[in-house]
Each structure stands twice: as structure tokens, then as C-alpha cells.
């Protein structure tokens, strides 16, 4: 029940961020589903003790690949799908704890949270890079397949 609740919340949050940055109405539902699926994969990584950083990496790879597919399907720019779906992966909690501990003078803990923040952000950026690689690979393979089977 807890997991289903989290997935529903992920969908709602992505929908909300989509409303804030004004993505087209037709894209809202699909962006929400991408957010839900990738948050599900993050939860699976968490269930196997993969850690937040690896979970964010897997999530952002998923967002990159799925957004590019959605962009091709809906004929819209890919950023319309990947910016809202990323909102659940933003390390807001760690960023807040970093600011709080710096303000209170707990520098040891603050540096710890800063490192976590850098790791998570780096993982998301790396995930986008890997997703770009996968997208090119998928495009190349579909092209080869189409050339090999021109009758379909």
C-alpha cells in the first residue's frame, strides 16, 4: 500500500510541476506516467539497498530514454517530458539539511550533506548522458532494422 501510495504521489507531483512550468495539456498525462515509472524503478533500487545515488542514476536514465520516446510519439520537444518528471529526484531534502546545518554552525554535518548533494546531482547528470547514448543506440538500431525490413 505504501508503494502504491508513493507512486500515486509521484504522478501527482509531476502533474503539479507540469502545471507550474506550463507544459501543453496533451503532454501532462504522459509526463506523469514517466514520473511514476521512474519513481517505481527508484523504489526497486531502494528495496535492494542500492542507495539514493544509484537510484537517482537509474531514475534519470529512465527519464531520458522514456522522454525521448514520448517526444517522438507526441511530436513535442523532449524537455516537455523530462523536466517535470525529474521533480521527484531533486535532492531537496539534502539541500535543505545542508543550508540548515551551515546556518546553525554544524559544519561537519553540513559538509556531509553537501557531498551527498553533489553525488546525487552528478548521478542525475551522468544518467542524462547515458540516456543520450542509449537514445542514439536505439535510433541507430531502428534505422538498421527499417533498412533491413523495408516492407514493414
Amino acid at each position: 500500500m505504501n508503494i502504491i501510495g508513493q507512486l500515486i504521489l509521484a504522478y501527482v507531483a509531476v502533474l503539479g510541476f507540469g502545471l507550474i512550468i506550463n507544459i501543453p495539456h496533451q503532454a501532462l498525462n504522459l509526463a506523469g506516467w514517466i514520473g511514476t515509472l521512474t519513481w517505481g524503478s527508484y523504489l526497486i533500487v531502494q528495496a535492494f539497498d542500492g542507495g539514493v545515488v544509484f537510484g537517482s542514476l537509474i531514475g534519470s536514465v529512465g527519464i531520458g530514454v522514456l522522454s525521448s520516446m514520448a517526444a517522438r510519439y507526441k511530436k513535442m520537444p523532449a524537455i516537455i517530458f523530462n523536466i517535470p518528471s525529474l521533480v521527484s529526484f531533486v535532492p531537496g531534502s539534502q539541500a535543505y539539511q545542508m543550508v540548515r546545518n551551515f546556518a546553525l554552525g554544524n559544519y561537519r554535518q553540513a559538509v556531509g550533506f553537501t557531498l551527498q548533494l553533489v553525488m546525487i546531482t552528478g548521478a542525475i547528470a551522468l544518467g542524462f548522458l547515458l540516456a543520450e547514448l542509449l537514445n542514439r543506440l536505439i535510433a541507430f538500431c531502428t534505422l538498421r532494422w527499417r533498412l533491413a525490413h523495408p516492407d514493414r
Partner: peptide
């Protein structure tokens, strides 16, 4: 001008803040 009215953006803000708080904490 922007096609999404202010109240819809406020609904969006409400939908982002509550669910993400539950998910994170």
C-alpha cells in the same frame, strides 16, 4: 500572454509541495 492562469499554477504548487513532502519524509 501565458495561457495557464494563475489559479492553475497555484494548484500546481499545491500538488508539488504536499506529495513531495510525504515522499521525502
Amino acid at each position: 500572454s501565458r495561457s495557464f492562469p494563475l489559479w492553475l499554477q497555484l494548484v500546481g504548487a499545491a500538488l508539488v509541495s504536499g506529495p513531495l513532502m510525504i515522499m521525502f519524509r
